[in-house]
Amino acid sequence: MNAASTPAIEVAGLVKRFGAVTALDGLDLRVEQGQVMGFLGPNGSGKSTTIRILLGIARADAGAARLLGGDPWREAVELHRRIAYVPGDVNLWPNLTGGQAIDILSRLRGGVDRTRRDELVERFDLDPGKKARTYSKGNRQKVALVAALASDAELLILDEPTSGLDPLMEGVFTDVVRELAHQGRSVLLSSHIFAEVEKLCDSVTIIRAGRTVEAGTLADLRHLHRTSVSVVLPGGAGTLARRADLHDLAVDGERVSFTVDDAELGGVLADLAARSPRSLVSTPPSLEELFLRHYGVELPATDDAAGAAVASKASAS
């Protein structure tokens, strides 16, 4: 068995219906071992449903899902020893303390590393002796985070794990996940916080209405999209406005801004240089822009992720 060649998560054509509602409509998702994958999509796009199928607590109606090479439903018990999960909305037993809840959840995974647990309780500034009914949402979230991050799991499945955390604790979370990623653990991070995903993830999968619309490394995705350029030209835009390869052109006196495909960037920069710009700022598309582009325009229906990426580029050009 070659563990390195087995993807941590491999999902193809996943379909899930709830009555008349189709929650997943042929979703694809692949996370390699050691990869930190951002999982993005608007509310109701099917992120949590996908995660519930991967956890073996919901069943797919069609399609394939493999978790660490195993069947998430049939081999749930064996697989769950090797993964850890944090939900976005943690509900705890009101009469048990946070510390008790951490130990129960850890034990059900298969044991707890006390040193590691105590270290994380310390780092997340959690009082483990308080009854769960007195915890705020953020503190309940910390309980699930400590239980998951203290484990020796090969794969972490995190569903909006930082909802309710303050920025300080978000920072602690980012640090801990980075450490785990350095140790070669795989992570699936579903999140709405773009800064968090950009900091942590090497790749992202963007889904919409139960389908994958974009998947790849962040660097690749940025190349597929246009760079924003804003420049101050003493002579104004002039003949620049006639270039066909500039998009979203806006001129305000000497200030000119536009977007340009990466492939055309060299030609455009040469043109600009001849106009002696006083200042020039070029920014690659942010994850937020990538994300919003998918939801700002109507996309044609596509069958697979690669097709979606190409199609989105085509429609954007």
Binding site: R66, D71, P72, R74, V77, E78
Partner: peptide, 28 residues
């Protein structure tokens, strides 16, 4: 981890099936 099946080249469909009796009661 010896209980895991070798990784298939293609993912197998997630068809409903019966859970082996032992695994169904782990942590009981």
């Amino acid at each position: 981890m010896t209980a895991l099946a070798p990784a298939p080249s293609r993912p197998t469909p997630a068809t409903p099936g019966h859970t082996p009796p032992v695994a169904a009661f782990t942590a009981f």
